[in-house]
Design a binder for these strands. Structure first.
Lengths: 346, 346
DNA sequence: CGGATATGGGAGAGCGCTCTCCCGCCGAGG
DNA sequence: CCTCGGCGGGAGAGCGCTCTCCCATATCCG
């Protein structure tokens, strides 16, 4: 049988002071006589005391924990629950989100608990988790547009911040990117290097980000005298990029520049292009989006529109923290600017 | 001001029973008169009651949470803390681990909190977290051989299970792969398709898994009359694969078969090979290891030794659960068998 | 020198839950 | 008829912490 862990009471007895005094030393609240403070510190050292968090949480009503939720759409059965997790992390995007979030949370001794909300049951679980006070709030990254989770969270008045603007308005804070500007950047770069017969592989059109990237790309083209551009819709996966590029090439064999709405699809496009004997970027220039790790690891290295995911994720965590602390009550939005990163593919 | 959440007491009053009875209904413990049970259930429904976890944890001494720790080596300053996170998830391996772990935990209402232990401070944090009872145990995935965390965990007698055998013995349970068999599989496949001038890019030699993969590869070769094989050490990253393959090619330009100790390095090797005018697999066959997503996404698709990471991760979670429940007190090990997956590269 | 004002420690009431007792009621058996 | 289990509900004692009071002592000013 493991020995009972030392409590505040034990430390107090050891140091010859009251429980309250030890608590003050531990939490650094109110002045404590330096001599007594050291006395207590030594007692803590000797006993190997670690404050019981459940007891603290019970009275402070704070878990010092946030839920990091990756949320899918629809009512997928939870048959593929861990497949979902694997799929999610196959996209390097989420690794960057985690990095950014942890970067903010850690210095504040907050901890992220990972949750997947790809089914109705799973969403319920997230809600219950928060209502039980196991986490103080939620950071939500949706993989689909029609994700019902944000609305549920808002309705339950639980603190939450979203990555990306939800497709239908919800009174929650979110961080986002100026996707339209990103599309414009891609267009201008392709035009600048002499491409004239452009095409684009856009993301799922029910996702606001996809719409915006496409709109920005089109607008910029229109402003430079290109009123029409062939579009094929992809699903942000490598395979969909392959399929889209194949189709595009069939319809427009003379394409000399492609904008893909993310790097994974750009990578797929490059593969198809090479297989069909096109050189990238000499024959066809390709611009991706995100600046994820594949942009650097795939060959040729991708010219891409950088999304500062880590900073965005950190900001998301910061907003949530403010909401939790009550320092912010109204929902807000923070929009970041994209940046073109030129490598080999365009 | 948010209204106070309903408590057990509130539900009890609402249903006209005692707190204990409501608790019995909530936890499904002991028989409760069906009529009263329904009465209570309706009261719970009406009040929107969700049991406060801190209060429950306080008395049950269980957090229903496990720490999922990605642990690095040495005493890296925490300057690159979120870079570490991003780097970790850049390897698709971790996504699979997460998937496997969540697959086991979720049906049991256990939750993983993500922690990174790449510095001494971070390791301390993990230990404290567990000692505070915020998590009931730890699942540890080390990225380096000389990771001090397992020893610290064992010393503190905290429940923990490792992914992969630690390089120095520690009284903790772990799951692992029969890496030696994996090396053998790769060797036999390359020999079987007619390769005769083989070479290998091994992993960091202070990692037991790397040593074993290499040993298995060499043994099998020796058994087939190939006493010597050129070896270059890599670091499990794409770049190190590129560097290793370049060096190998310089020393042995006639190489016709390569075994890389993971897929990322195999991908790097393929890139170099192509750049130097070698066709893969016609001129040089390449076998990877892991069967990660890059095995499918890179071109050519990689022939590789499959590591059943998801099952291994699930088993790791299962072992931890047993340790936490006290159903298992002695450390144990579970070793999985690898499997060859033939695709295009060999 | 008395009283007002800091300053710092102690006492104790909870936070919301679980769980061990205990007690009342029932049917069965002597 | 009485006793004796068994069943199901209630009472209440904590779990380990925080935090508000309250009180003792030290400090300063009129």
């Amino acid at each position: 049988m493991r020995r009972r862990a030392p409590t505040l009471e034990d430390v107090a007895r050891e140091a010859g002071v009251s429980r309250a005094t030890v608590s003050r030393v531990v939490n650094g609240i109110r002045n404590v006589d330096p001599e007594i403070r050291d006395l207590v510190r030594r007692a803590i050292e000797r006993t190997g005391y670690a404050p019981n968090r459940a007891a603290r949480s019970l009275v402070t009503r704070r878990a010092e924990t946030v839920a990091l939720v990756v949320s899918g759409a629809g009512d997928t059965t939870d048959a593929g629950q861990n497949a979902f997790a694997a799929r999610v992390f196959a996209d390097p995007f989420f690794g960057r989100v985690v990095g950014g979030v942890v970067g903010f949370l850690r210095p504040r001794s907050l901890h992220p608990v990972l949750m997947f909300a790809e089914s109705d049951d799973a969403r319920d679980e997230v809600l219950t988790y928060l209502r039980q006070g196991r986490a103080d709030g939620a950071l939500v990254v949706s993989t689909h547009a029609e994700d019902p989770l944000p609305a549920l969270l808002a309705e339950a008045r639980l603190p939450a911040v979203l990555f990306a603007r939800p497709s239908r308005p919800v009174p929650l804070s979110y961080v986002d990117l100026a996707h339209r500007d990103g599309g414009r950047l891609a267009a201008e770069h392709l035009l600048g290097r002499g491409c004239r017969r452009l095409a684009t592989i856009c993301g799922p059109l029910d996702v606001p980000a996809s719409q915006e990237r496409l709109a920005g790309f089109r607008d910029a083209l229109a402003r430079h005298g290109h009123p029409y551009v062939p579009v094929t819709e992809g699903g942000f996966t490598l395979d969909s990029g392959v399929a889209a590029m194949s189709e595009l090439l069939e319809r427009h064999p003379d394409t000399d520049g492609v904008f893909a709405a993310n790097d994974l699809m750009a990578q797929g496009a490059c593969q198809v292009l090479r297989e069909r004997g096109r050189r990238v970027p000499e024959d066809v220039a390709v611009v991706g989006f995100d600046d994820s790790t594949v942009a650097v690891t795939s060959r040729p290295r991708l010219t891409t529109v950088r999304q500062p995911v880590e900073e965005m994720a950190a900001e998301m965590a910061r907003l949530l923290d403010e909401h939790i602390l009550g320092a912010r009550t109204e929902a807000t939005s923070v929009v970041f600017e994209p940046e073109l990163v030129v490598r080999e593919s365009a």
